[in-house]
Design a binder for these strands. Structure first.
Length: 937
RNA sequence: GCUGAAGUGGUGGAAUUGGUAGACACGUUGGACUUAAAAUCCAAUGUCCAUUAGGACGUACGGGUUCAAGUCCCGUCUUCAGUACCA
């Protein structure tokens, strides 16, 4: 009986499903371990070979941890709200729920074939009402919270109302939109209900605000930055303008410092932490206010260099700055307006791309320098961004290159305030070497001292203070889409109201089309039943909105990251109808011990879910501050596209080496038409697409050789390889081993099936090791010394590899072990039984089969990992001379702990053969813990 | 520009704290078994010279530290990823 992987794999997959082998219990005497994959979006294209890479790695780790005696939670689900299903719905009219359901079924089928140890009883789907009920609940909790800076955590909004009615807002230190509003308790209590609501909205952690968006009138929707190419929409090529819209926002900025500090407590890669640090963008400096001459206005700026305050020779405002209209003089009005109009037409992306062109206009107004009281001209320029800091800068041309370039371009004076520095060619921005000059009380001071002194003096004037600024902006939470979570929100008199938890979920309404309405409202504006009856507490027909108890519901839906920000907690208690997860389940599982996924989520999903976790922790719903303790980014598996060369204007194609002699254009063809030596299957190509049916080919050596290009796997490049074919031809175990064998987990690499015969051959050899012809041939004979050595070498290496996530090298270790044992003709059960456990995380199906043949009734998944015993690994020694404190020493390396006698005999043996090194006999042998032995000669 | 990662045979990639570079696999070549093919097994395979027994050179490039450097330090080049007028 040969290795019949198809039968074996089907058998054990059915067994696992039936016995629920991988179901995790929420209480156990064992220690817990939570291994999570980033859940997939179920796209119509199905899984390709890149998807399972991370899943295989996490599956190996999960299975290993089970062998090591842990109670492992390893769930899977679907991030099933998203754009592709909606776009498909717009084109075909098919409801996204149906598309999504079909795609999920296909994903599940493909996943099952690979033999993952997921606990499917905990599956979640973000688009399921029983799931998004709790996404809506979290939204309401955010709405009902404010951020208290003094206790540094979120608190219930009710507590804030209590404070307001008792003491007004002067004693509250809270994060809010407008810190200048001040009221007493008497004033608060005399406000109307609507006024109170409007004020509270400025403190809530999710709030309505006017936000600038990329609006495409033709498509009637808001576009994300990456959906715009050269100022027009990627789809359709329609113009895009910047427009202000009222949208929900998340006050993530309140958590900026904690999101930054929290990075110190988690085990993520440095590059990922660095990305998040950059994104949060903390900078320490000062806020300075300049009075505007002849107007009763002040301009507030943020600067990291208050020490250069005497170098200010002008100010620049962003064209969008609100003061621009107020302070521009009549003479400059036309120029300024023309400039503002010109910049408004450019998208933010264009402005960023076009860094080199210097542009700006003088407003005609002057500010007053806080210390010298000299006039400072106020300019506008698009190098200042409205969205960062205060949208205004104090320009110090001698110390900042952008200010310098601007000043040179417009002939604005440049004052040198640095001692002994030449600024005739460029600005000087080296803080460390800074010594201030020409600056009154700052003269002679170095950077750090000058900053302190400048802030102190500004505070005395009441025109500035030390300030920390963050780049992180509040996150827009509204999408003008259909296929997303509806908000549990209705509007009374323009003010948002939350629906009570007991009436959730608010389910997505039916619409006949998935496009925005003709009047530019989101798709939910097409729903007939989309109004809230506060007496019946149910969704009713829009026609009843005239009734006094019926109000319109929110038309936007939530963004993709809403559902994915908390799903890890839902897995802990997926079926719970009464809570998002029970306190017991949350207390037991805590957070994710190991999270594996792609690094495209570095600043999106991974930041938002940290934010929500901290928030839920503040409000007492979670016992943890961070969602993911350890995170590994798997690399992308790239496709190898195949290229054929068509002679321009003809239907003739030339082989790769002939392409230079013709004027050609490149076409990509399906990679399944290419064999291992880059040869094209011409008959296959002719059948593939009608345009090739009567094509001519110019061959080399009787073959058509294609060009290859490594790029992202994508349908449009015809380079997608599905795992299904591999599973059929070589089996899931081969696929699993091969994906690991391809290279380091974290590295991107092109998919190439050529090497799969290597790992497949290994599995065949493994099978043969346990069989003599057709007979299972494991015996009770005592193992040889060599066999024991091979086994324990393998245990040690595999265990180290798994702990270090170097799965690729353990595949090699297995191959060496099997080759050695085959050569040794080992049939001993004492060796072969533990060996199969070592291999089982990688190739679980064949391991289960051999395990049951070894006489076990239970799944191998519950067996214990073999214990490493170093005593089987006595090996030869190496020695190197070292010089230490003028004395000659030898360092001797042994492969493991040896007894004193063994060391001494090894030293003697070594001495005999290496007399040139061991001219003197060792006087003392020092055993250093581990494996280095120092011999002092 | 900045940040991060990396550069090793024909290819994917190994190499503990510095300690015999190229494990393992693919590919290639030769051989065995077959009528033949497939499958399987065996051998060789960094480069160059000896063509035996051995020697020299080799981890992007140039220096340095060290008894010893793929690994550490300085400089240069290249590639990939992320990010960008952040005041």
């Amino acid at each position: 009986m040969s290795y019949d992987f198809n039968t074996i794999e089907a058998k054990w997959q059915a067994y696992w499903a039936e016995k629920e082998t991988f179901k995790a219990e929420n209480n156990s005497q064992k220690p817990k371990y939570y291994v999570l994959d980033m859940f997939p979006y179920p796209s119509g294209a199905g899984l390709h070979v890149g998807h399972p890479l991370g899943y295989i790695a996490s599956d190996i780790y999960a299975r290993y941890k089970r062998h090591k005696g842990f109670n492992v939670l390893h769930p899977q689900g679907y991030d099933s709200f998203g754009l592709p299903a909606e776009q498909y719905a717009i084109q075909t009219g098919q409801h996204p729920a149906i598309t999504t359901k079909d795609n999920i079924a296909r994903y599940r089928q493909q996943l099952d074939k690979i033999g993952f140890s997921f606990d499917w009883s905990r599956e979640v789907r973000t688009s399921g009402p029983e799931y998004y009920k709790w996404t809506q609940w979290i939204f309401i909790e955010l709405f009902n919270s404010w951020y208290d800076i003094d206790t540094n955590k979120a608190r219930a909004i009710k507590e804030l109302e209590t404070i307001f009615s008792a003491k007004g807002n002067t004693t509250v230190n809270a994060v809010s939109d407008d810190e200048t509003i001040v009221f007493t308790s008497q004033e608060w209590n005399s406000f109307t209900d609507k006024e109170k609501q409007a004020i509270l909205l400025q403190y809530r952690l999710t709030y309505l605000a006017e936000t600038e968006v990329n609006w495409c009138p033709e498509l009637g929707t808001v576009l994300a930055n990456d959906e715009i190419v050269n100022g027009v929409s990627e789809r359709g090529g329609y113009p895009v303008i910047r427009k202000k819209m009222t949208q929900w926002s998340m006050r993530i900025s309140a958590y900026a410092e904690r999101l930054l500090q929290g990075l110190e407590t988690i085990d993520w890669t440095d590059s990922l932490k660095e990305s998040q640090r950059n994104w949060i963008g903390k900078s320490v400096g000062a806020s300075v206010t300049f009075n505007v001459k002849e107007y009763d206005e002040v301009i507030e700026v943020f600067t990291t260099r208050p020490d250069t305050i005497f170098g200010v020779t002008f100010m620049t405002l962003a064209p969008e700055h609100e003061l621009v209209a107020k302070i521009t003089t009549p003479e400059q009005k036309n120029k300024v307006n023309a400039y503002i109009e010109a910049t408004a037409k450019r998208s933010e992306r264009e402005r960023m791309a076009d860094v080199k062109t210097i542009s700006g206009v003088f407003t005609g107004a002057y500010a007053e320098h806080p210390f010298t009281k000299e006039p400072v001209p106020i300019w506008i320029g698009d190098y200042v961004l409205a969205g960062y800091g205060t949208g205004a800068v104090m320009a110090v041309p001698c110390g900042d290159q952008r200010d310098y370039d601007f000043a040179k371009h417009f002939d604005i004076p440049i004052h040198n305030i640095f001692e002994g520095v030449d600024i005739s060619e460029e600005a000087f921005s080296d803080k460390e070497k800074t010594v201030i000059a020409n600056s009154d009380f700052l003269n002679g001071l170095t950077y750090k001292k000058a900053v302190k002194t400048a802030i102190y003096e500004l505070e005395k004037l009441g025109q500035g203070q030390g300030k920390t600024n963050y780049r992180l902006r509040d996150a827009v939470f509204s999408r003008q889409r259909y296929w997303g979570e509806p908000f549990p929100v209705y509007y009374v008199d323009g003010m948002p109201q939350m629906i009570d938890v007991e009436h959730l979920p608010i389910k997505l309404p039916e619409v006949e089309k998935y496009l925005p309405t003709e009047t530019g409202e989101p798709p939910l504006g097409r729903a007939d039943f989309w109004a809230w009856d506060v007496e019946k507490n149910e969704v009713v027909s829009n026609s009843k909105i005239d009734d006094k108890s019926v109000f319109p519901l929110e038309l936007n839906t939530m963004p993709g990251w809403a559902g994915s920000s908390w799903y890890l907690f839902r897995y802990m208690d997926a079926g719970n109808q009464n809570e998002f997860a029970s306190a017991e389940a949350l207390g037991y599982w805590q957070n994710v011990d190991l999270y594996i996924g792609g690094n495209e989520h570095a600043t999106g999903h991974l930041l938002y879910s940290r934010f929500w976790t901290k928030f839920l922790n503040d409000r007492g719903y979670l016992p943890v501050e961070e969602p993911f303790k350890k995170l590994i980014n798997q690399g992308m598996i790239l496709g190898t596209s195949a290229i054929i060369y068509r002679i321009s204007g003809s239907n003739t194609y030339v082989s790769k080496s002939l392409k230079e002699t013709y004027d050609i254009e490149e076409l990509r063809v399906d990679v399944s038409l290419i064999n291992a030596s880059d040869e094209l299957n011409i008959d296959g190509l002719k059948k593939w697409q009608p345009q090739f049916a009567d094509a001519d080919f110019k061959l080399e050596d009787g073959k058509y050789i294609v060009g290859r290009e490594v790029e992202k796997m994508s349908k449009r490049w015809y380079n997608v390889v599905n795992p299904d074919g591999i599973c059929e031809q070589y089996g899931a175990d081969s696929l699993r081993l091969y994906e690991m064998f391809l290279g380091p987990l974290e590295q991107s690499k092109p998919w190439n099936t050529a090497g799969i015969t290597g790992v497949h051959g290994f599995l065949k050899k493994l099978w043969k090791l346990y069989h003599n012809g057709d007979v299972f041939a494991v015996t009770e004979t005592a193992p040889t010394k060599d066999a024991l050595k091979t086994l324990h070498k393998t245990i040690k290496k595999v265990q180290e590899d798994i702990e270090n996530f170097s799965f690729n090298t353990s595949v090699s270790t297995f191959m060496i072990a099997v080759n050695e044992l085959t050569a040794q003709k080992c049939t001993s059960k004492e060796i072969l039984e533990p060996l199969v456990i070592l291999i089982s995380p990688y190739a679980p199906h064949i391991a289960e089969e051999l395990w049951s043949k070894l006489g076990h009734v239970d799944s191998i998944a519950t067996s214990d990992f073999p214990v490493f015993d170093a005593s089987h690994l006595v090996e030869s020694t190496k020695a190197y001379p070292i010089s230490f404190n003028g004395k000659m020493r030898f360092t001797m390396e042994l492969s493991l702990d040896l007894s004193k006698d063994e060391i001494e005999s090894a030293v003697m043996a070594y001495e005999k053969t290496q007399q040139q090194l061991a001219g003197r006999s060792p006087k003392k042998v020092i055993v250093v813990p581990g494996k280095i032995v120092n011999i002092v000669g």
